[in-house]
Design a protein around this nucleic acid. Structure first.
Length: 584
RNA sequence: GGUCCGGUAGCUCAGCUGGAUAGAGCACCAGCCUUCUAAGCUGGGGGUCAUUGGUUCGAAUCCAAUCCGGAUCACCA
């Protein structure tokens, strides 16, 4: 998957360099140069840097000599203001007018965000969020939702045709335990609202009760009752089946509440219950054909020659497993949507499971088996270990959201309580809560685990979502206050202060970062970029007052540049699923 | 034990397709609001990039070994 040379600034520098390097016949292509261009560690060196080590061998010359030579041979032009050799690097300073026309103007008119960024964009399904009904959604699920949603949006931004899907688990032992407890042991009245969360607590109680009664005379009776629940669910008839239909809806309502809050949408909800029976039938078919074998009363496939052990597909009681369903589901995804690639956003504990599933699909002759990818991430845990609904040590998503709202209203937003309507207060708190929670989930590299600490999460300063939202709101406010009084004409060439040029250079990097975040499946790259953009802007903002600027041209241009930053923040946060408040 | 993933400042992390003096945030210290939003800005202290060896002109980054932590390896999902 190639990234296209969409960055007009870098492309122009690369062209200038290429013209100088070409005559030495080193075989260095325009593309090589474009790719090698980077940023100097200290902005005082210049805006872009070209390292000359690469040419050293071909030219049989020391890198710093080459740099000196190139610095003389590369001419300044409408884009390049100066070329300076610094050790083995050639550093370029770009004219503000060129930066303005190719970056700011394009941000303002929107063309910056419609450039073609990636060469190959196969039609892809991204499956994320695999919650269970009859359990409560916790902050661990939130990481998955934030990550999955950001990936969907980033891919769409980069030109991919994306189908989003979710795969909730609405059948299985957890459902039976929950219904069992509800029927035989629950003494609470059924609440009128938040039934889904309440149901989740019953699952935990049920599980714990069953555990505690193992080895007691009660155990046999429990097993008998549980098995009756499962039988009724399987035959889709009886009291428990009716309970299942009703309680399932409570859980779906909870999921919908969370998804609504997060602003995520799924093109297709695949239910475990819909693939359960067909998946067992599929396995039996392949068993008869001889691909799958019997072992210890179960049916599965021996993958030990691939170091993947035995992949069990039908238990000795005749029921299927998670892998069974995923095999049937994989097939359906390609069939239902004619996709070319299938991505599963699931935490790393399932790595072995997916390795087995994909290998099994391959051996079954499934032509798209090599187009299935498990995108693994590390999960969220608590200071005292992994979260588990079974043990009941979870932080429900709604608790985090509620505490965040309260903390914001009693904190920074308190100063607006006499000025704002209740509605604006609630909306703003909600936007900032989304900024804090989603940014917090996404900014960490997916490969690293998150240890959740509520106290830390309620902080909104420093490298956090609210900082970026604050920068947006601040620009918005400034534009509102100054807008009418600024009468000068915009002229990018007036942006001679280094801080202003840094803002423009940083802005021009937007698409490079977005495409990296997308193709590497690391949305945290975009977080870092947006944070740095805000950092550079705030330095610029504090450096010299725009309001008090006497030169009308500079004043108008700086205000316009500020607008560009606001647009980029809004666009970038949008790709992460984070909204921006007009004021905060 | 096999496989996979992590180990960078007191804490949380970025940098990892090799390149300039290893960067942020939090915490700590010193400054900046008669307001373009202080959820901000400026400056300061703080590092054996787990360890050892290798490849290279050059290694936090690549390779190997070792140590620490975690996940996973047949009837849960």
């Amino acid at each position: 998957m190639n990234i296209l040379n969409h960055d007009k600034i870098k492309l122009r520098i690369a062209e200038s360099l290429h013209a100088a390097i070409e005559k030495y016949e080193t075989g260095t292509t325009l593309n090589d140069i474009y790719t090698a261009l980077g940023f100097p560690p200290d902005a005082n060196f210049g805006h872009y840097a070209y390292p000359c080590f690469i040419l050293s061998k071909a030219l049989r010359n020391a890198p710093n000599k080459i740099a000196e030579k190139l610095a003389i041979e590369v001419d300044t032009n409408e884009a390049i203001e100066s070329v300076i050799a610094a050790g083995p690097y050639v550093n370029f300073k770009i004219r503000p007018a060129f930066l303005g026309v190719n970056t700011c103007d394009e941000v303002l008119n929107g063309t910056m965000f419609t450039r073609t960024l990636a060469e190959q964009t196969p039609k892809t399904m991204i499956e994320y969020s695999q919650p269970n009904t009859h359990k409560e959604l916790h902050v661990g699920h939130m990481r998955n939702i934030c990550l999955g949603d950001a990936l969907v949006k980033l891919h769409q931004y980069c030109g991919f045709d994306i189908i989003s899907s979710t795969f909730p688990g609405d059948v299985g032992a957890h459902v039976a335990k929950c219904l069992w407890y509800l029927k035989y042991h629950n003494t609470d009245p059924i609440p009128t609202e938040n039934k889904g969360a309440w149901l989740g607590t019953l699952y935990t109680k049920g599980h714990l009760k069953l555990e505690s009664e193992i080895g007691t005379p009660q155990e046999a009776e429990n097993k008998k009752q549980l098995s009756e629940v499962l039988t009724q669910l399987e035959h889709e008839a009886g009291e428990f089946y009716d309970m299942w239909k009703e309680t399932r809806q409570w859980s779906i309502e909870l999921m919908n509440n969370v998804y609504r809050w997060a602003g995520v949408h799924f093109d297709r909800w695949y239910w475990e219950s819909e693939v359960d029976v067909p998946s067992v039938a599929l396995v039996k078919k392949y068993y008869e054909q001889g691909l799958f074998v019997e072992s210890k009363g179960t049916i599965g496939i021996d993958l030990s020659e691939y170091d993947l052990g035995f992949c069990m597909l039908i238990k000795s009681d005749g029921h299927g497993l998670y892998a069974t369903k995923d095999i049937e589901l994989a097939r359906r995804k390609f069939e239902d949507f004619k996709i070319e690639k299938s991505v599963y956003v699931v935490d790393k504990r399932q790595a072995h499971h997916f390795a087995q599933v994909f290998k099994t699909l391959e051996l079954m002759g499934f032509e798209h088996a090599d187009k299935c990818y498990h995108l693994q991430y590390d999960y969220v845990e608590l200071p005292d270990g992994a979260m588990s609904s079974r043990k009941g040590n979870i932080v429900p998503i709604m608790d985090l959201i509620d505490q965040m709202h309260a903390s914001l209203k009693n904190g920074h937003l308190d100063k607006y309580k006499d000025e704002w309507t209740t509605e604006e207060m609630d909306n703003t708190a909600d936007f900032i809560a989304k900024g804090a929670i989603k940014y917090g989930m996404i900014k960490i590299d997916p490969a690293k685990k998150i240890v959740f600490d509520m106290k830390e999460w309620l902080k909104t300063d420093g490298d956090a979502g609210p900082y970026l939202q604050y920068t947006y709101a601040r620009i918005n406010s400034m534009v509102k206050k100054l807008g009418g009084d600024v009468t000068g004409n915009v002229d990018w060439s007036s942006m001679e202060e280094e801080v202003a040029k840094h803002v423009m250079v940083k802005l021009s990097d937007f698409n490079n970062q977005a495409v990296q975040a997308c193709l590497n499946s690391k949305p945290n790259i975009l977080c870092t970029y947006l944070y740095e953009l805000c950092k550079v802007f705030n330095t610029f903002y504090n450096h010299r007052s725009i309001r008090d600027e006497e030169n009308k041209t500079i004043q108008a241009t700086k205000l316009e540049l500020s607008k560009c930053v606001a647009i980029a923040i809004k666009k970038g946060l949008g790709l992460l699923g984070i909204p921006v408040p007009d004021r905060m």
